[in-house]
């Protein structure tokens, strides 16, 4: 199945839950926020969120910044 993660197309062969995908990507869920098709997913819902073909994910975190335009 193909999904879009942070604007890039990815083929997913393994887990189809969001929690599984984040684990495969080695992402610490503590410090990120995830949007699935423009809706924010609660951290408590990661394990019961099933990904579908053509889903679009945004995975964000904090970086250094003051006020970079």
């Amino acid at each position: 199945m193909q999904i879009i993660i942070n604007g890039e197309k990815k083929t997913i062969n393994g887990s189809t839950t969001l929690a599984g995908l984040l684990n495969e990507l080695n992402i610490d869920t503590q410090r990120v926020a995830v949007e699935l098709n423009m809706s924010i997913i609660d951290k408590s819902d990661y394990s019961n969120t099933i990904l579908k073909d053509n889903d679009s994910l945004e995975i964000v975190s904090f970086i250094g910044g003051g006020a970079i335009g």
Binding site: L25, R31, V60, S61, F62, I63
Partner: peptide, 19 residues
């Protein structure tokens, strides 16, 4: 301390986190 919100680099997970 102000921080910005940006996409996580999913291809290079070796990077350290500001926090």
């Amino acid at each position: 301390v102000t921080v910005a919100v940006r996409r996580v680099n999913i291809t290079d997970r070796g990077k350290e986190n500001l926090l």
